[in-house]
Simulated assay, not measured.
Amino acid sequence: MTHGVRGVGVDIVDLGAFAASLAEPGTRLTRAFSAAERRQCRERAEARGAAPVGGFSSSSSSSPALSPRPTASSTPPGAVTPRRDEDPLARHLAARWAAKEAVIKAWSAALYGAPPPISPDLLRWSDIETLCDAWGRPTVRFGGEVARQIAATLGDDARWNVSLSHDGGSAIAFVVLEARLPA
């Protein structure tokens, strides 16, 4: 069976606005991420020498500006050092939020002309997970109703190619969906 590009999605997130949304008391945004996504993002932020902030840890720091940042000697070669006022955990979560949005856009492009299979108010964002392997390469994994509807609309063998990046005050995700081409 021939596969081809069925959809492309891209999304960009303003890190400052995203971090502010995460920091709001009682925000529902925290539920948009699976436990595995939160863990990976926390580990990535901590590996870069930053204390976790942004409502996903027991850190006593209430201000992102007070969190330790990597020094030049602790930053891996080629890595971007976060700005002094930037929440490193929010930086990684923002890229994953962008990926969730980009996945929906790519899937929607593949279904052009057909109604959405899941009502936006019933979509569970945590059912769209962006996880990285041991070498930091991202992929998406689906659960719940999202997984069922993707299988129903695209088949079980759809491939999702994901690229994440963050620079300056933005995070971006690019998703290419490959699936069976219609006959």
Rank of each mutant, 00 (worst) to 15 (best):
A90H: 01
V5H: 08
E86F: 07
S67K: 07
D127C: 04
G7C: 13
V175N: 07
S62L: 12
A99M: 06
A106T: 05
A171G: 08
D156Q: 09
W160Q: 00
E43M: 13
G169K: 04
L164V: 08
Q40L: 02
S62P: 08
E178C: 06
D85L: 05
G144V: 12
R48S: 12
D167K: 01
A171Q: 04
R159S: 14
E86V: 13
A109S: 13
C41D: 11
A158Q: 09
G55L: 01
R180E: 15
P64T: 00
P88R: 03
A173E: 10
A17R: 15
K100C: 07
H92Q: 14
G155M: 07
A72T: 09
A152S: 14
F174A: 13
S170H: 15
A32F: 13
A90L: 00
A23W: 06
D14R: 08
L154V: 12
A94N: 06
D87K: 05
R39Y: 06
N161L: 15
I172P: 00
A151W: 05
G55T: 00
A79P: 01
L111Y: 10
R84E: 13
C41M: 05
F174R: 06
E86H: 06
S119Q: 11
I128L: 15
S57V: 03
A79K: 05
I150D: 01
P68T: 09
S170V: 11
A47M: 10
